[in-house]
Each structure stands twice: as C-alpha cells, then as structure tokens.
Design a protein around this nucleic acid. Structure first.
Lengths: 333, 333
DNA sequence: ACATTTTTTGCAACCGGTTGCAAAAACTGA
DNA sequence: TCAGTTTTTGCAACCGGTTGCAAAAAATGT
C-alpha cells in the first residue's frame, strides 16, 4: 500500500539507514544523498510511519487529552485551544471521554497501550486519583484546571480558586451587598470547595455581612436553574450570589427572571470563567475571568518540558484572575 | 520500563508466540498455557503494546476525528457523542483541529503518519475536498453532517438540508407569515446552500409570499447578531426568519431584542439543530431538530463496517428532522 | 602525494509485537 | 499398544522503522 522505507531505499539505490537518516533531523547525511533520497521519496509519496518509528525512539508524540466535561460550553474553547497548541508543538491529542469511567486503572492501561508520551487531565471535577494514577504509572501528567496545593503531587496549571472566592467576596462587599450567598458547583469538586472557602474567609472580617451557601448538582445551566428555583421557593433570595461558574450563573439568571425579579436591581450575580457566552448582550454577565488561553499554553509548554525531563519536580502554575464588569451587579456606590 | 512480551515469556518459561497468542483472541492456546501466561502477565503488569501490534496487523484502531468547528456549542455535544461511541466500539479518536488548515494534503499526510484506520470528518462547513483527499489516499472516510448527494463520492451521514429548508418554509406559511427571510450561515457552506434552495423552492408555489435572503459570516452568535443588526438598520425586518442554525438564531434574537422588538409578536424566528441551549427557558427557541445522536451512532457504525470492507460502495444515510415548537414563532392561526 | 582527521555510509541488531509452518504433544479409535 | 488425527507449541521471518559501530569516502594539512 503506502510506500515504506525499503521501497524508497531500493528506488534510490541506497541503504535503508540512509533513508531513515534523511528523515530524522540531526542525522548525518550528505547533501547529495539527501537529494537522491528525497527525490525517490517524492516519487513514491513516502512519508515515515510514526508508530513504527516510535518503537525504537520511544516517542509517539501522542498526548492523552482526558476530560469528563462535555457539557459545559467553556470546554469547547478548552478543546479548541488545546488541540491548536498541541498541534503547534508537534503533538497529537488522543481524546478520552471519561464521563462515565470511574476506575483510573482502566484509563491508565488504555493510554499505556497506545504509548502516549504524556497525559493532560483537563478537568476541575475529575477526582485527583486519576492524575495520580498516571504519575504512578510513570506517565508525565499535567492537571489543567486542577487544584492548587502548596506541595503538589502532580503538575497543576490553573488558578487559585480560593483567591477567586476572596475576590468575589471583596467585590460584593465593595458594592454594598450585605446579604450574600455562594451557589457552587458539585460539593465534591475541589474547585467548588476552594472557591467556597476563599469566599467565606474573606467575609470573616465583615461581621455585618451574612453568608449562606448551596450547591448545584453540576456545572450546568439546568443545575443552576434548578438550584436557584429551589432557593427562591424556600426563602427570600440573598442580595447577591457568587456562582460556581458562568454556565451555572446563566441558569441562575434564567430562574431569577422567571420569578419576576430583576438583575441587578433585585439580585446581583457574579460568575466565574468569562466564557464567550458571558459577553453575549442578552446575558451580559459580570464575572471573574479565568485566563484559559494562558492556562492551556502553559500546560502544553510544561508538558513539552516534561517530555525531556520526566522527573521534573512537580510544580503548580497559577494565573491570576480578574473581574470583568458587565451588567449583573449593581454599580459601586 | 513497562513489561514486554519477552519479559512475560521468560517469566512464564514459554515462547514469545505463546504469549502473543494468549493476547490475541481466536488464537490456539491450551487452557494450561493460557493460565501460566496470564499469571506471569499479571505479576508483571503486562499489557500488549497496540502500536507494535499494529505494525503487523495493520490495524491501529485509531480514528481521525477532524473538525473545524470549535465555536459552535453544538459541537461539544458532537464530540461528546463521538468519543463515547468510538470508545464503545473499541476505537480511539485522534482529534484534529482544522480551523486554520487549508491544504487537505497536510491533513492526509499527518493522519497517514499515524496510520489511522479511518477518518470521520465532522463538519458541515469544511470543503468537500478534505473528505475526497482521504478517500483518494485510500483511507476510509465518513463525512458526518456533510452534504447529501444522490451519487455520493464518500460516505455521508446527516440530514437532508434541502428538506429542512422546505420544512421551515411550510411551517412559516402555515403560520400565516407572508414576508419571510432566510438568514443563513456562510454562503460557501454547502449546508447553507441546500437549506436555502429548499426554502426557496417550497415557497415557489406561494406567489403571495415574498422571500429575501442574507448570510452571516459564520455559524456563530456574533455573526448572527451582526447580520441582524445590519438588516434592522437597513430595512423593516421580515415577518419571520429561518436562521442557519441555533447559535445564529440566538444572536439574531439578541439583536431583535436590543432593537426593542418582540419575539414572536413582531418577528418570528425558527432555527435549526435543537441544541441543548435552545431549550433554555430564557431562549426558548422554536427550531428544527437534527437528530445528532443518531447521526453520530450511524457514522460510527458505518466506520466500523468500512474497516472490514474498505471498498464498500459509498452511501448516503439521511435522518429526518422534526420541528420542535417553542416560543419564537407565533401560534398557528 | 601521502598520512591524518572528519564525515558519510552500510551492516546488522533491535524496538514489541504477529504469524506461517513444521515439529511436538495430546488425543482418537481399534 | 500403536498408527492416525488433531491440537498446541516454538522457530524464525517479518511489520517499518532506528542506531551503534566499523568500514569507506571525503576533506584536511603538509
């Protein structure tokens, strides 16, 4: 079928090694030899088989891109950026959907069978066992959007979720809200836990501000909407909510609107992520921007570095977030 | 590092072939032998290297999943479903982002280097040359969401876009709209062309109905919003619009709302896709549902069939769409 | 022109598997 | 028990590449 090394060698009348060398950079080939080989290769439409090559080089340039989040539109941006940046770096993403996988060992085995050079875990909700399992198997891992920890076990690139919580809290206080609430994603997600603790911490110095909390089942529109409806049925709403993320916020907004309340006059909302949709005029969500492009670029750079230095000491790379003011919080007084 | 066939063979005190055979189903191994080998493999944590295997079997179980659409949220659903279904079928998606690739040959070469068993082109906007290039290179291709044609050159799974156009037209007429418009995606996309021609055709029998048309730059919120703003500045709007897809429709809705007009009282909108978001209460878009899960399942099944029968005669598999009535068209009179 | 150094080339073994073939082992039936 | 048949096993070649090593060729210095 497709031409092989041998075919090219025969056609050019040279040894197989010569052909191999013309296609591996850094190898010693004379210019005349290279010409001859390239000509033959051209005529046969030859290009080297990466997988055969990987057998000896032990490099496939395949990177497992694993996630369990295929319902939050922000992840489309994430996949877009990851695939682009990986491609630019000469790597290829093997996409793995872990939505209904619970055993890390399965994923590890699967990815080992494909000899991936490394794994990017792109999720803020996947249990940390997954990243650890890869590390334990000796596969380089970067956990993007993962939990920051002072002594990270695996490489983490993301934001300081606790700081985001504090940031949201300060912003709400600054705008004069005195009855605020946290409406998080699933309580089991580390991102939710950290945002919550930061939020509460920052409010500890403000005895005049009361805080309540609740958790949606997922980072999704429906979950946000449902949770907010529940809250509205049960109680008078708080004056302002820090929501787990943007898509959750949009669900919350929808519930508020249905209840006949006005944003930001009756209720304030601040989200997190600044996904594309947050800027849509009909949504116009005030939110904390997570610099996803930077996180992803840095993740890939880190991965590239790790390919050369697998035992690199685990580090945490955190990016700062900033508030994007739109129309869902009342103006500063 | 990881245990190899040879390690297992030595540990079990048998030949390498014996080990190989225990891990290839359909091979002849006695039960005793199998036990011995499995024990040794277990102890060493061995599992076979798929890529080495592929060298002789000529099967990698890698499928190129290529798309250029990383901005339309519907594609997150598409990726979710594709990855799941491929995984279920024992295949692995190698994700390729063709957003800024213009030369089909590059993609073909790249995927050949990874010896993919086949390629799924998941896009309604990628030029047909891409699919053709794969076919010409002898790589099995399925074009999902591609253009239907009576004599397809490659396997196509999707919907009959012209029929959708007719369906939209009939629906608008039925609801008494007499001044209707088509607001498509990019004019170069075959899906847009077909939807448009179907729409116009169906209206040919209705001399009392006037049609106008325009095209947004992309299937995106911004493009839809911008195009609608342009229309509103230039003219009185039509009574109802058939929009290229849902995300475009949402942009259009946003422009209409900003202009102080009411939907469906002042302007009617019908979209296409029925993406998750179309059902959000704050959007509540009447739309034509494209059965994406069926399309994707069928695409993967077709791909699996092609792996066994590469020269299968190209077929087109079309699924019918149906109108999902929500709140953006006025009620039937 | 020659000896010396440097560069280029081919040989052969290897990466981690599979598989056709023939020998060995295990069954059959009488 | 033994010849005949069937099943299981190992050998060795192969898949499509890479690479250490030594020999061949080219470049260098005098």
């Amino acid at each position: 079928m497709a031409a092989t090394l041998k075919d090219v060698a025969e056609r050019a009348g040279v040894s197989r090694s010569a052909v191999s060398r013309t296609f591996t950079d850094g190898a010693s080939v004379s210019i005349k030899m290279r010409r001859k080989v390239e000509k033959a290769a051209q005529e046969l439409g030859y290009s080297p088989n990466f997988l055969a090559r990987s057998l000896t080089t032990r490099r496939t340039k395949l990177i497992g891109l694993i996630s369990n989040n295929f319902h939050n539109p922000i992840f489309l941006e994430v996949f877009d950026l990851f695939t682009r940046k990986l491609q630019e770096s000469g790597l290829r993403p093997l996409l793995v959907n872990l939505s209904d996988e619970t055993d890390p060992q399965n994923s590890v085995r699967m990815l080992q069978q494909y000899s991936v050079d490394g794994v990017v875990v792109a999720s803020s909700t996947l249990p940390p066992e997954f990243s650890k399992a890869f590390r334990d198997a000796g596969v380089p891992v970067v956990n993007s959007f993962g939990r920051y920890s002072a002594a990270p076990q695996v490489h983490v690139v993301g934001i300081d979720n606790a700081e985001c919580g504090r940031m949201a809290a300060r912003e709400l206080v600054k705008r004069g809200y005195r009855k605020v609430a946290f409406l998080g994603g699933p309580e089991s997600a580390t991102s939710t836990q950290d945002r919550f603790s930061g939020f509460v911490n920052a409010l500890a110095n403000h005895p005049d501000v009361t805080v309540t909390q609740s958790f949606a089942e997922a980072y999704s529109f429906d979950a946000g909407r449902k949770e907010m409806q529940r809250l509205l049925d049960a109680d008078r709403p708080a004056e302002a909510y820090f929501c787990g993320d943007d898509v959750l916020s949009i669900g919350v907004l929808s519930a508020i609107e249905d209840a006949g309340l006005k944003v930001p006059d009756d209720v304030g909302i601040i989200g997190l992520n600044d996904m594309e949709m947050a800027g849509w005029e009909s949504i116009n969500l005030t939110t904390i921007r997570q610099p996803i492009a930077q996180i992803i670029n840095s993740s890939v750079e880190l991965m590239v570095a790790m390919l050369d230095e697998p035992d690199r000491y685990p580090e945490a790379r955190l990016f700062s977030c900033k508030i994007i003011e739109r129309g869902t919080l009342r103006p500063k007084t």
